[in-house]
């Protein structure tokens, strides 16, 4: 009886181990995801590209929609923060300018980005 119980426990553990491994490696749902789960670096790039698109089309609603996909609550602050990061990274002033203008359009003005509003 004791041996049978041990066999059952071993069998269950063995099967569960394989099941969990297979289930997590090959998930049943689509692994394809939303921009909100992009890595931080790619989210930063998303913000920069959104600002650049805004500099071309001037469509603030569209820019908002694109930024909202990243899931941040304060879009203006997110863009302003990216602008300051861009400044620290030494990106060209024209790129920083696009971020500064989008941030300002979203109501986020910072003293460090102010000089780039006209870039």
């Amino acid at each position: 009886m004791r041996r049978t119980l041990l066999t059952i426990i071993l069998g269950l553990a063995f099967g569960a181990g394989i099941g969990l491994t297979v289930g997590w490696i090959a998930p049943i749902s689509s692994p394809q995801t939303a921009p909100s789960v992009l890595s931080a670096q790619w989210q930063s790039d998303w913000v920069l590209m959104t600002a650049q698109a805004y500099s071309l089309d001037g469509d603030l609603n569209l820019a908002r929609q694109r930024l909202a996909l990243l899931g941040a609550s304060d879009l203006g602050a997110q863009v302003a923060q990216r602008g300051e990061e861009a400044l620290a990274e030494g990106l060209p002033p024209a790129y920083i300018g696009t971020l500064a203008r989008l941030a300002a359009a979203l109501g986020a003005r910072t003293p460090t980005l102010a000089p780039y509003l006209t870039q």
Partner: peptide, 15 residues
Amino acid sequence: VAAAVGLIGGLVYAW
């Protein structure tokens, strides 16, 4: 039999 039950249980949990 126990392994099969464990496998199904593991997949249900993981998925």
